[in-house]
Computed example of a mutant assay.
Amino acid sequence: MSADLKALIERAENWPEAARDELAAIAEQIEGELQAHEYSASDDELRVIDAATASLDRGERASDDEVAAAFAKFRL
């Protein structure tokens, strides 16, 4: 186990119970996907994908400035 993961798990032991439960649920989901070797999108994810596809079908596109701003916002 990487040192970063070990440190995170140690810190998580002091999180509120609801946060620990959420972390465990996410980890179980990842584990299940790794074991199944396939990913199944949730209903919410499928709705977002459908909405994005419909937006593209309508010809809606982000401008170059909007794309640059998004990359700048999420760049580490």
Rank of each mutant, 00 (worst) to 15 (best):
Q29I: 01
S42H: 01
K6R: 14
A68C: 00
P16Q: 10
E28D: 13
A52L: 13
G59T: 03
A18V: 13
D4S: 11
A25T: 05
A3K: 14
R61G: 03
D44G: 11
A69Y: 06
A52M: 13
D64Y: 11
A19W: 12
K73M: 06
A62P: 04
K73W: 02
R11F: 07
E10Y: 14
E45D: 06
D57G: 07
A68I: 00
A51L: 12
A41W: 00
R58I: 00
R20I: 02
R20Q: 10
E10Q: 15
E13Q: 15
F74M: 10
R11L: 09
D44P: 03
E13I: 06
V67Y: 00
E66Y: 04
A70C: 00
R11P: 00
D65K: 15
I30Q: 13
E31R: 15
P16H: 08
G59E: 01
E45V: 06
I26M: 14
W15A: 02
A19R: 15
G32P: 03
E17A: 15
L46K: 15
Y39E: 06
F74E: 06
L76C: 03
R11W: 07
A24K: 15
A41N: 04
L76V: 07
K73S: 04
V48H: 11
D4A: 13
E45W: 01
A68W: 01
E10M: 13
E28T: 05
F74A: 05
A19P: 01
D57T: 09
V48S: 07
E45Y: 01
A12H: 08
L46H: 03
K6I: 08
Y39W: 09
I30M: 11
Q35M: 12
R61L: 10
E31M: 12
E28C: 08
M1N: 09
N14T: 08
E33H: 07
Q35G: 13
A51E: 11
W15D: 08
K6G: 03
G59K: 00
Q29Y: 08
N14Q: 10
A3Y: 05
A3W: 05
P16L: 06
Q35P: 01
A18Q: 15
D43L: 11
A18W: 13
E13H: 14
E31V: 07
I9C: 03
A24N: 10
E17H: 07
L56K: 15
L46N: 13
A51D: 10
D50Y: 03
I30E: 11
D4V: 09
Q29S: 08
E45R: 05
